[in-house]
Write a protein that binds this DNA or RNA. Structure first.
Lengths: 218, 218
DNA sequence: TGCTGTGAATAGATTCACAGCT
DNA sequence: AGCTGTGAATCTATTCACAGCA
């Protein structure tokens, strides 16, 4: 079983799980790899391969049992219990995240929020009172926070990430537009909105260049 | 030159461009692939390979000229002019995006915002007045909007994406937690925060399992 | 018969390693 | 001497194709 699992496989597992939950809610009991593949934007072989990296969960000739597979994926993804999350940086994105209702039902409980701005400290944002950045280490350790979210300006993102790592966080989600790779051995995933837009810009520009070239009759 | 360029290459090009702009501001004139690689979390060979897909921009024995390479990358990525963007869904994430100051200096001008909620229509959010979704097609076509952002609940995301595509948008950035692949031939990139958190959850869970296994002495 | 599970084949991305300029 | 540009080698991910079971 399970050797080194690629990031893209993990992404797809999340997508499969989402679909399985929908199917479960709809009362469907059995699903084939082809059906799962369809909505996740993958192929049936891919679905089977992804799942087979962790074990044999299907019934030959029939498909997969929705409930049990759903449970198995939750366990594999570590979603069978809630994670404690701390947010650093209560600016626009930070506040939006605090107000985002889908986090805790999905197993991510934001239990603390930090900022440097004195005018924000003590304020309640969506029911959570903002603490001073100075308390970060202490609070994170004391409450056993497992995941940190960095929503600060890029200049301080790396320092904040390091503080979170030192305080004992095991993984970091970074919204600042800087590549952090991993800090002090703690894995970081970066969500970089401008980078995504630039990716789309490339596609548009490339299409435009292609259109011109064919107009020229190359 | 330029055949089919992978997504990961385009991502890295954006990162290189960012660094080049920093270096330019700092007055640096020449940079080696190794230096570029370092901060972008890549290898020097990767940098050279990525760039060579588009042409030969370096000077053997010296490195790359910061200014010219920066301009070239801007052109390749289509960032040598501003793109017109429309936002659909002025909820928490949508408003945060409207307030995000880094968009227009990076060449993405949000020129229209839409929502279904009558209490929001007509309101001004960060200087932009929210329009009814009914006006989407008309406004997007009339203003020549090129990129659409979907920040709606997942249930309507696909419909909204299709409306944007039909109105003539050439690319879509989706924040709703649904895989859209591409709609009516228009490329879609999805930013899925819960998916990213679940990816981190997997890493934490896997690490935990690993720790247990070694404690058991397997 | 129908669909899983999986080795084998293929495609794709990254890294190596070195010839070729400056 | 130093660093680019790039074919060749390697490593990783995806797809094929079919034996094996229900």
């Amino acid at each position: 079983m399970s050797g080194r699992i690629s990031d893209s496989t993990v992404r797809r597992l999340s997508l499969y799980l989402r679909m399985l939950r929908d199917l479960e809610r709809a009362g469907v009991e059995l699903v084939s790899s082809a059906e799962l593949a369809e909505r996740a934007g993958a192929t049936s072989a891919q679905v089977r391969k992804d799942l087979s990296l962790f074990g044999s969960f299907g019934k030959r000739g029939r498909g997969y049992l929705v409930g049990p597979l759903s449970d198995t994926l939750e366990e594999i993804l570590g979603l069978d219990h809630a994670w404690k999350v701390a947010l650093v940086g209560v600016g626009k994105i930070g506040s939006a995240l605090l107000g985002y209702r889908d986090l805790s039902p999905r197993g991510f409980d934001v239990v603390a929020a930090f900022d440097v701005d004195p005018s924000k400290i003590g304020e309640r944002v969506f029911g959570l009172s903002v603490r001073s950045l100075d308390e970060l280490g202490e609070t994170v350790s004391a409450r056993g926070v497992e995941i940190g979210i960095v929503a600060t300006p890029p200049q301080v993102a790396e320092d904040v990430a390091r503080d979170l790592a030192r305080a004992g966080v095991g993984a970091i989600l970074n919204f600042a537009p800087v590549e952090l790779g991993s800090v002090d051995g703690v894995p970081v995933r970066t969500v970089d909105i401008v980078l995504e837009l630039e990716g789309l810009s490339y596609v548009l520009a490339a299409a435009r260049r292609g259109a011109e070239r064919s107009r020229e009759g190359a």
